[in-house]
């Protein structure tokens, strides 16, 4: 199968290793990965900020990038929020702008766009990450299901099930897991104090698990949680508590293991890199 990677703007610019690991996983399964280079952003930031006029060219750019680039069978994004935006915001923005043609094209693309765990589970038939992907991660991890994956894409237990089948992983239940971390894009700046109060509770719950890492399927939420953990100097029995994207754990194998933070240089900003 030929899979077009929708890297998402935040992963592209700030967490390139997440996209590289997504490529690694898909190629390991024998699929071809292409990267339509004119892609940029789903437009969610503009939409959620109410800047609908500004969102239109971004949506147009996204649709064109995937229409005009190399041929592909499905689109894969290592983000629940951006995959959700493609389906649940782009057509709406286009219709508002009176561009039904763009709306229909965006809808068509969104119908073939999958969040990573969705693609692995529903399309590629992965039920055991250790067995089928060779995933190996012998560390204590807790999992935060991000809101848009959970409530818009209805990912259910897909991400959790993949994680639980990673070899040697010590997956710890996160209390109040379904509570939002408080990111919400510009919400974290427009309502910074409320956002911080939500983040504090999330960080406290993460720390309570004793895990050294919090994982999830959305780099943006992990950036937020990681930024809070780092600021508060949150610690587990194994040292500082950080965040790591689900794709990184799935890509980690016995042969090429992703190392947990052992010393400062590996951990910065509360995020495992």
């Amino acid at each position: 199968m030929r899979i077009a990677l929708f890297a998402t703007c935040i992963v592209d610019a700030m967490y390139p290793e997440v996209a590289r690991d997504t490529v690694t996983i898909l190629e390991r399964l024998g699929h071809e990965v292409v990267f339509p280079e004119r892609q940029a952003c789903c437009g969610q930031m503009h939409v959620n900020s109410g800047d609908f006029a500004g969102a239109v060219p971004v949506v147009e750019g996204h649709v064109r990038a995937f229409e005009d680039g190399p041929d592909w069978d499905v689109i894969c994004a290592p983000s629940g929020s951006c995959a959700a935006s493609a389906g649940h915001q782009q057509p709406m923005i286009a219709r508002r702008a009176g561009d039904d043609d763009l709306a229909n094209r965006a809808e068509d693309l969104a119908g073939r766009t999958y969040e990573l765990s969705q693609l692995l589970t529903d399309v590629l038939g992965i039920t055991d990450a250790g067995e089928q992907l060779g995933s190996y991660f012998p560390h204590a991890v807790t999992y935060h299901p991000s809101c848009h994956g959970m409530r818009i894409l209805r990912l259910g237990d897909r991400q959790r099930d993949l994680l639980s089948t990673v070899q040697d992983i010590d997956l710890r239940e996160l209390p109040q897991a379904d509570q939002c971390c408080g990111f919400g894009g510009t919400f974290s700046m427009k309502n910074a104090e409320v956002s911080t109060a939500m983040l504090e509770d999330k960080a406290e719950n993460v720390v309570s698990t004793g895990a050294s890492l919090c994982t999830g399927g959305d780099a943006s939420c992990l950036m937020h949680i990681g930024g809070g953990l780092s600021r508060t100097g949150a610690r587990s029995p194994r040292g500082e508590v950080g965040t790591v994207h689900l794709a990184r754990i799935l890509a980690s194998t016995r042969e090429k293991p992703l190392l947990p933070p052992r010393s400062e240089p590996l951990l910065s900003g509360g995020s495992l890199r």
């Binding site: 649940h88 057509p91 709406m92 923005i93 286009a94 219709r95 508002r96 709306a103």
Partner: peptide, 12 residues
Amino acid sequence: TTRTGVVPSTGK
């Protein structure tokens, strides 16, 4: 009725 309302998530 000419203003039938719009589905807020899709604009339809």
